[in-house]
Amino acid sequence: MTEELKQTGATNAAARNSGGSVIRVKKLRKLYGDLAAVDGITFSVEPGETYGLLGPNGAGKTTTMRMLSGLSPSNSGSIEVAGINVVKDNRAVREVMGVVTQHDGLDGGLTVFQNLFLFGFLAGLSRKDSKNRANEVLEFFGLRGRSKDNTYELSGGMKRRLAIARSMMTSPKVIVMDEPSTGLDPQSRNRVWEELAVLKDAGVTVLLSTHYMEEATILCDRLSIMDNGKILDEGTPDQMIEHHAPKEVAQLRVAPAALRTVRDYLTEREITYREVGALVSVTGLNGDRPDLSGLSDVEGVRTSYRAGNLEDVFLTITGRELRDG
């Protein structure tokens, strides 16, 4: 990413000078009937910080973000964004905050450029400013050549990036992004990550939700692990890994024919393991390297070791896999 993005609304210094957290959520709760979709969560995001909500399907990430943007009433608790009490004034918050919704929400009746231009106009920019800004963000996202295309002609990755571009039309100081890279191929995802890194450089505060531990590790300064509407723990990715993940995880690629042997071996020695697809993951007791020596000459088993990561953190905290929720 070589483009420089002008973020007129925000610089690091300006954000810091405003003092205090940009987002402050306290004991926030939301019920759908009997279901507590968000069940008393508290967190805050500091100026210029990228903060992640990491959780599986149905954790309550979208519900949280919709309440933050004033698009969903809460049952109790408080939300403050850039000093605005969102519960009291759900219009003002949308003047200062950019929002990337989980579904792109692109307008199929308009071209790529018109999507941005008309959004900017609706958001309050003058026609001239909106036009200029639309060209600016298209340039930054490398979509200038697609200006006149219909949105349905774009690839999934381009659509997602256009939705992110749209949230930047008003140069907001704070943006919430609901799963910015879900469903994208690795290449598009990398591109989104680069673009978000530039945003961060420009001093924009970002709250994002994700299913991907890799995304959280790379992008987030801090994150919380969310499940069933609750925040289970919070910290920097390193802290989380240090506290909750084993130092090392053995990963066995096991051919179907050898699966039985491996299971029996591990069960016999009371070594806990979990199976993810064709992979058997083994975490050593107390973080020690487990004794898998007896498997070394079983045909169809390949063993490798990797460091503990956020995926393991999630498993430790919730007892469940992150991916299949």
């Binding site: 698009l71 219009r91 949308r94 003047e95 307008d107 959004f119 609706l122």
Partner: peptide, 14 residues
């Protein structure tokens, strides 16, 4: 259905 209003609602519209 296509979330066009949802997008509009991320601006200060009621």
């Amino acid at each position: 259905d296509n979330d066009v209003y949802e997008t509009a609602l991320t601006t200060p519209i009621t």
